[in-house]
Simulated scan of single mutants.
Amino acid sequence: MGGDGKVLTLAQVSVHNTPKDCWLVINGKVYDVTKFLEDHPGGDEVLLSATGKDATDDFQDVGHSKSARDMMDQYYVGEIDVSTIPKKTKYKPPKQPHYNQDKTSEFIIKLLQFLVPIAILGLAVGIRLYAKSS
């Protein structure tokens, strides 16, 4: 491995975020991938967008080959102090009122109790008017 095994904070790694100086954190290790930017099959933008954070998930989601993983050794700088990486929180949707099927059914019943008599009355008036005109 190329690094001297030093332990770095995320703040120290985060300043290396340009095309001339690009470091990544993957699986608790820090890599200087500056020389690899031009050769990266996904383009340099992909690597640059992964700076300043733990890029482990991004790296694993792509499904890199064994040879790509072996190639990482030559870019090794050191270890990341994991206490400096913010903990990932699980998404919790906002609290919403419970959908009450009974209240919906109750509303529909009340609506029908109002509309059905009006419809019957309208039909009766319509039949009576039709009968008078005939």
Rank of each mutant, 00 (worst) to 15 (best):
V62P: 02
Y31P: 02
L8S: 01
T89Y: 12
L123P: 00
L121N: 00
V62L: 04
P97K: 03
P93C: 05
Y99I: 06
K95G: 03
Y76P: 04
P93H: 05
Q60T: 11
I80A: 00
T56Y: 07
L47G: 01
S83E: 09
K103E: 12
D58N: 12
D4V: 12
P94K: 03
A131D: 12
V77T: 05
D81N: 09
P86S: 01
P117F: 11
K88C: 04
L129W: 08
K53G: 06
V62K: 02
L111M: 10
H98M: 11
T104W: 15
N17E: 02
N17F: 06
N17K: 05
D32Q: 07
G43V: 09
G3D: 05
I118N: 06
L112C: 14
D102T: 11
D4H: 13
S105A: 08
E106N: 13
Q101W: 14
S133H: 13
V46G: 02
A68D: 11
Y76A: 03
L112S: 12
P19K: 05
Y99F: 15
S105P: 00
F114L: 14
P41V: 06
S65A: 11
C22L: 03
L111I: 06
A124N: 06
I108K: 04
P97T: 03
K20R: 15
L111P: 00
T9E: 06
H98I: 10
F107N: 06
S14W: 09
D70S: 14
Y99C: 03
V62E: 00
G52F: 06
V125H: 05
A131K: 14
S65D: 09
F107S: 07
A55Q: 04
S105N: 13
P94M: 03
I26R: 02
K103M: 14
L37K: 04
L10H: 09
D54F: 00
V33A: 01
P86L: 04
Q113M: 07
L129G: 04
G78R: 05
K95Y: 07
D57M: 07
W23I: 01
M71H: 14
T51P: 09
S67N: 12
L111N: 03
G2V: 11
M1H: 15
K20Q: 15
L24K: 05
Y31C: 02
L10T: 08
G3L: 07
M1D: 13
A55E: 05
Q60W: 12
H40Y: 14
G63T: 07
E38C: 05
K35E: 11
P94V: 03
I127Q: 07
K20M: 11
L111V: 09
P19A: 01
L24N: 09
K110T: 10
K110Q: 10
V116L: 15
I120D: 02
P117M: 04
Q12A: 05
P94C: 03
V62Y: 05
K110I: 12
K132D: 06
A50K: 03
V25C: 09
T34I: 12
D57Q: 08
Q96M: 14
A124L: 15
G52M: 02
S67G: 04
V7Y: 06
V116Q: 08
V13M: 00
A119S: 12
D39V: 02
I108T: 03
K29M: 11
K95F: 09
D102I: 10
V33S: 01
V30E: 10
C22K: 01
L121G: 07
N100K: 15
A68P: 11
G78C: 06
Q12T: 00
